[in-house]
């Protein structure tokens, strides 16, 4: 099987992997495929370069980043080593499965948020403990609709959440949102947003303190009340303010109008 045949099979199957290509320097045009376990197919032309670049590629894949990295012909990476060596430019292309969004609470806002999340490419899971609300018929746009309490959902699947993923808690119900927050904080998820008025938020902080969640590090991970201050009211407008906040958190921008700032846009 050629590298391309293996590559196209993995891409079609949504399997995570990196495709490395020498785009400048010795061995231009050579490719190597790296899967998350570190299995290599193909070669960039030198075993040490393969080893160093594949290790970097696994890190980039984890972060979902794609870009060019510079090495010496034998995988040298330090500026001193690179000074006298020819540079090999390697394009590291990360093929990561789509990011996930878990939405807790099968409410009106959920349908709008699920729709907007799909536009951005998320794999959307809607969770609610109430069987009558958590139905595929109410949320046809979601990839998964689960009748479950937050606890088991996080215990069974929380390990799959990473920096690119989001948990949005829209339940408004303490017996549901406190365990959802506890569960989300125990994962590596990149965004945790919790819906509610400022009053609800203040009361929720008290209840979180009762279950031992009060550290500044934990509370800093909670975006509550959820969303940017766009002044929207409808479920659709609220959904836009939530995903806009998710983007701003990922890019570490302050979400001010471009017209009110200067400097590069991207």
């Amino acid at each position: 099987m050629s590298v391309y045949e293996k590559f196209s099979a993995l891409v079609r199957d949504d399997q995570p992997m990196s495709l490395l290509t020498v785009v400048r320097g010795p061995g231009t045009g050579r490719v190597m495929l790296v899967d998350p376990s570190g299995t290599l197919d193909g070669s960039l032309g030198d075993p040490d370069l393969d080893r160093v670049a594949s290790r970097d590629a696994i890190g980039e894949l984890e972060a979902g980043r794609t870009g060019v990295r510079h090495y010496g012909p034998n995988g040298q990476t330090t500026p001193e080593d690179l000074a006298d060596a020819e540079t090999v430019e390697v394009f590291v292309e990360s093929f990561a499965p789509p990011p996930q969004m878990w939405i807790f609470g099968a409410v009106d806002f959920t349908a709008a948020l699920a729709r907007v999340a799909k536009v951005l490419g998320y794999k959307v899971t809607v969770c609610d403990a109430r069987e009558v609300f958590a139905t595929k018929r109410r949320f046809p746009m979601a990839d998964e609709v689960k009748v479950t309490w937050p606890g088991p959902q996080f215990t069974d699947h929380g390990g799959r959440l990473g920096a690119r993923d989001a948990v949005c808690i829209l339940t408004h119900d303490p017996k549901f949102d406190v365990p959802a927050i506890e569960g989300a904080l125990a994962t590596r998820v990149g965004y945790i947003g919790v819906m509610g008025s400022r009053k609800t938020h203040t009361k929720r902080l008290e209840r979180l303190a009762e279950v031992g969640i009060s550290s500044a590090a934990d509370l800093a991970r909670l975006h509550s009340p959820i969303g940017l201050d766009l002044g929207g009211r409808t479920p659709e407008e609220t959904a836009i303010s939530i995903v806009a906040e998710i983007i701003a958190v990922r890019t570490r921008r302050n979400a001010a109008p471009l017209a009110a700032s200067d400097g590069p846009i991207h």
């Binding site: 290509t21 785009v23 870009g67 060019v68 394009f91 292309e93 590069p264 846009i265 991207h266």
Partner: peptide, 10 residues
């Protein structure tokens, strides 16, 4: 042909 890098707006 693959985009490997961009500068400015792309």
């Amino acid at each position: 042909a693959r985009v490997v890098d961009t500068n400015g707006s792309g």
